[in-house]
Amino acid sequence: MRIALFVTCLGDALFPDVGKATVMLLERLGHEVVFPDRQTCCGQMHVNTGYQHEALPLVRHHVEVFEPYDVVVAPSGSCVGSVRHQHAMVARRHGEERLAARAEGVGARTYELSELLVDVLGVEDVGAFFPHRVTYHPTCHSLRMLRVGDKPLRLLRNVRGIDLVELPDADQCCGFGGTFAVKNADTSTAMLADKMRNVLDTRAEVATAGDASCLMQIGGGLSRLRAGTRTLHLAEILASTEEVVA
């Protein structure tokens, strides 16, 4: 299948390994990946901070860039949530009914990585190898906006060598919330403290999730504590093989 990659602005600028892993994984499974290089950002940060007017050009740009493709994947539950649930809303708020309809079309063809693998490509065993103790944090937008359910866990359970341990209070928010982490830094940190305690209680070497933003929050906290647990995106674990270990 020919799949367009929306790598997300965070993935492009700060976490290129997530995008690389997504490409490696999909190519290993025999698919063709295209990276429409005019892509930028879904505008979620603007929308969630109240700047819908500023988000409008980003929505229009995103729709124009991705409209030609039948299947789009993004390794981020929250950016897919934005494309699927916010783009049309932003367009409508500005009276752009046609753009809204086009945005809905792109949204319906855009998938988060685990959705693409399980629902569209029909694979649960991607042939990965990752011999480490891992715990999985289901990020809020994957869980409640996209309803990915246990798809990421089904993929992880099929990884060879993995020691997958359940994260206590997994469905609790990590405290990131975009600009919330800055505007309400103290509360965000309090939430992060509990998330880190739960992660550390599992004695996992790696905490994984489907969103680089939440991993930046959890990983930033763990790194500050020199906790000895690192964060890796789901794509990086799934891309890992006996030959190329993440």
Binding site: C140, R144, C173, N184
Partner: peptide, 10 residues
């Protein structure tokens, strides 16, 4: 107040 949330959706 509208910013006092991570939009986690719970």
């Amino acid at each position: 107040l509208p910013y006092a949330s991570t939009l986690c959706g719970a």
